[in-house]
Amino acid sequence: MILDRFRLDGQVAVVTGAGRGIGAGTALALAECGADVLISSRTEGQLKDVAAQIEALGRRAVVVPADLSDLDAVASLATRAAEELGRLDIVVNNVGGTIPNAFLDTTPDYLEEAFRFNVSTAHALTRAAVPLMLADADLPNGSAGAVVNISSVMGRLADRGYLAYGTAKAALAHWTRLAARDLDPHIRVNGIAVGSVMTSALEFVAGDPATKEAMEAATPLRRIGEVEDIAATAVFLASQAGGYLTGKVVEVDGGLSHPNLSLGLSDLVPGGAS
């Protein structure tokens, strides 16, 4: 049965940034397909709500509140999953994000922080996970597991204000390609270039109806994405349904060929005024 290739029975996943939005939706989707899931983010109350939903699906959940900008903390999630859930097969590097900023307000430190939060976190967790994945490799076709990185459409498109965020997400996309070569043939590494998905992060800049309508009009599929659009893709990439993909970044963005959200930043002009 083709649907069996989407099953994750007996597997264990770690999902970062899983207290809400794409992370929470992905954790629930993996659990619905049969995986036990360790979930981590900063806010314990949100994680407990997600864990209750995972357990209602008949799967085990481990809640780890943590500051995931701490690379030691994020790396420790791999061992914690193996210790408490018995193995580790799937890593979803979802934690990340950077608030848009004008060019002259984007300091070198701000740029480095964006890289650390979006790329170094993924590297730290994946590096810690790989030996554990290889130790328990008994999945179909000799696979030891899968890594799914949540990148962004802004890693390949350009608009004002997204320099730090877009640069970091572009780096994560290419990290995905390079890590896939380092880890083949047993561990697959893929990514998702996420378009506009109506989570709390998007509501921060596009919460009013007029902005939402303008974004929909500028999107070929004429709608804002849903968390489930990304979660379903993550399941595909993590499961044997996507077992012949590695080093790929799947664009789940409604068909965008240019940004659909302008921040309205003005031109820089000679003399220092703007």
Rank of each mutant, 00 (worst) to 15 (best):
R5M: 13
R7W: 05
R7G: 09
L8T: 03
D9V: 10
V12H: 05
T16S: 04
G17V: 02
G17E: 03
G19Y: 15
I22W: 02
G25H: 05
T26R: 05
A27R: 08
E32N: 14
E32C: 09
G34D: 07
D36N: 12
D36S: 13
I39K: 04
S40D: 04
R42K: 01
T43Y: 13
T43C: 00
K48F: 00
V50W: 13
R60P: 07
V62K: 04
V64H: 04
D67S: 06
A78S: 10
A81P: 02
A81Y: 08
E84C: 05
E84M: 07
E84L: 12
L85A: 12
L88I: 11
L88Y: 14
N94D: 04
G97F: 00
I99E: 05
I99C: 00
D109T: 14
E113S: 13
E113Q: 15
F115T: 03
S120E: 01
A122G: 09
A129G: 06
A129F: 15
V130C: 11
L132Y: 07
L132G: 00
L132R: 08
A135Q: 14
A137G: 07
P140L: 13
S143I: 01
V147S: 11
V148W: 01
N149R: 09
N149M: 06
I150E: 03
S151D: 04
V153N: 05
M154P: 01
G155I: 13
R156H: 03
G161E: 04
G161Y: 06
G161C: 02
A164N: 02
Y165Q: 02
G166K: 01
A170T: 01
T176W: 01
D182I: 03
H186I: 00
I187Y: 12
N190S: 11
G191S: 11
I192A: 04
V194F: 00
G195V: 07
S196T: 14
M198L: 15
L202S: 09
F204D: 07
G207P: 15
D208K: 09
T211G: 08
K212T: 12
A214I: 04
A217D: 15
E226P: 00
E226I: 02
I230S: 07
A234F: 00
F236I: 06
L237I: 08
A241W: 01
G242N: 03
G242M: 01
K248R: 15
V250F: 05
E251N: 13
G255F: 14
H258T: 10
N260H: 08
L265V: 02
P270F: 13
G271N: 11
A273D: 15
